[in-house]
Amino acid sequence: MLSLLLPLADRWFAPAPPADKVGWLRGWTYAHRGLHGAGVPENSPSAFALAAERGLGIECDVQRSGDGLAVVFHDFDLDRLTGQQGRVVDHSAAQLQTFALTGSQHGDCIPGLRQMLDLVAGRVPVLIEIKSRREMHVIPLCLAVRRTLEGYRGQVAVMSFDPRVSRWFKRHSPHVVHGLVVTEEGRTTLFARARRHFSLWHAEPDFLAYDVRDLPSRFAASQRRRGFPLLTWTVRSPELAERAAQHADAPIAEGAGVAPADG
């Protein structure tokens, strides 16, 4: 009975988004953390510039600095991607933007979100994944991102694994396209399926970004049929690119999952 009621409840608690608001999300390939590779670190200005030059959409990760600004960086700690130690949140944005990214051949440092958006300048769409943890207060980072987006005229969307983020934008900045990132992690019990629906209802997203390893997915397919754009991550091979093409509207890809440039 519950498996029949959940899809019906979706229509009430998480209505499909207006098509004219979210249609632009479809049909792109998004470079996961920019078009990174040898000598070009992930989430670096060089990676974003290369993606824009190739005509690829861009996916990036955002953290909050110690002084409350949005910076583009994936990890909560600095050591994997820089020569520094400690947490991102323990440093000001000005300090973070002097920290060199390991392996860069172009002198890349951690960019601020404003710096990244100025570089892209609306040429290609941008997906901003807002990083959070359960114990974190998400409002300060949501506010920092919203402030940075004010006046930006390019196509941009925010997303997060944390349904509180999408819900915040739904409540406080509904004009910003907001999405829920989902991974099933092999959990197919009725309880796990119900939790996915509850997360959807809490988030009230405009789109889903789904783990490609979970596709095809009955839950993802049902939301896609209702009108939610379905993006999928992380597409790292031609085989996964084919899976994405069959079951989703746009891949978030890197490495061999990005189609080679024409010519």
Rank of each mutant, 00 (worst) to 15 (best):
V89M: 13
I139N: 11
G83M: 08
V71I: 11
S65G: 04
L56F: 05
M116C: 05
D90F: 06
V120A: 02
G112F: 04
S65D: 03
D108N: 10
T82C: 07
T98A: 11
S92R: 14
G122W: 04
S65C: 05
E53M: 12
K131V: 15
R114A: 14
L141N: 02
A94K: 14
H91G: 12
L119F: 00
P125W: 11
M116E: 01
D67V: 07
L81C: 12
D118K: 00
G68Y: 03
R64L: 13
L69C: 09
V89Y: 10
K131G: 14
G83K: 06
Q95V: 14
L141Y: 01
I58N: 01
Q115F: 02
M136E: 15
R114G: 09
G122F: 04
G103V: 12
G68H: 02
R87G: 04
A70I: 03
R114I: 03
V138D: 04
D108R: 06
L101R: 05
G103I: 12
Q85R: 15
D67Y: 12
L78S: 13
V62R: 01
S92L: 06
D67W: 13
F48P: 01
Q95E: 15
L96W: 05
K131N: 14
P111N: 02
D90H: 06
P111S: 06
V124P: 13
V120G: 00
R54Y: 03
G112E: 01
R114K: 12
S132V: 11
A52H: 03
L141I: 09
A93N: 07
P111C: 07
I139Y: 10
T82S: 12
P111I: 02
G107Y: 05
Q115E: 12
P140A: 04
D79M: 03
Q63G: 03
L119P: 02
G83F: 09
G107R: 09
T102D: 11
T82P: 07
L78W: 01
C142I: 06
R87A: 11
L50S: 04
R134M: 11
P45V: 09
G68P: 06
A51D: 03
P45N: 02
G55L: 07
G103L: 11
I58Y: 00
R134Y: 13
V126G: 02
